[in-house]
Amino acid sequence: MPRKTTIIGILGILLYIVGCYDGLLVAPADRFMGDIQRIMYVHVPCAWNTLVCFTISLVAALGWLLSGARARAEGRAWKWDELLEATTEIGVVLGAFLVVQGMLWAKPTWGVYWTWDPRLTTVAVMELMFVAVLALRGFVDEPVRRATWSAVVTLVAYVNVPLVYFSVKWWASLHQVQSSPSTVDPAMVLPLRINAFAVLFMSIGLMGLRTQLARRQRQALLGESDSDSTASSGGAA
């Protein structure tokens, strides 16, 4: 029996094929930007899901920090740390795609690859701070300390997420404000929606694999390789 996340991930891949086909070949080109606007159908889903991933990281960080002594002793709290490691890494990967896509879109439309406008600046800071979370995890070997430290740094790094979202509303920027269905042609909304769910579902599939990897690596570190079940492990060391 494949896991639920694997099934969702496969569904995401299928949706992504449909969404990219629709975005590349079916949806109309923009009246001013022409074909280059089709980048939106991968750029915006990556943006949304980067923020979704980091939001799950925040929930996981809170889950770990607020977990009781018993949940930790019984090893039930580790799922939060595994989730944090998974969603932070996937968010950073999607964030890297986001920046590259944005730069390739910006050069022909805005005229520059990069400019320090509020949106681009806040995205860069957010990305770097979550990279710092991953770097911190690489430096700390003791699992409990690693979980606590990375959870606290995640709380601080998360401040950037609302800043990224509201940057275009709060400050004058070169980047346009968020689109809504009323500002986007219905024929363009469809591939945007399909790919938003496609990237979300693919991310969930990757989360399933990444949490599994995080669990195995922690268990190898704690020398619990004989038992893969979390119920009796974790606090043993």
Binding site: P28, D30, R31, W110, V112, Q176, V177, S179
Partner: peptide, 16 residues
């Protein structure tokens, strides 16, 4: 020295 064009958040098909 640098001219940048700002796009709005409207995306429409040209046939409009």
């Amino acid at each position: 020295k640098r001219l940048m064009v700002k796009h709005d958040n409207e995306y429409r098909a040209p046939k409009d």
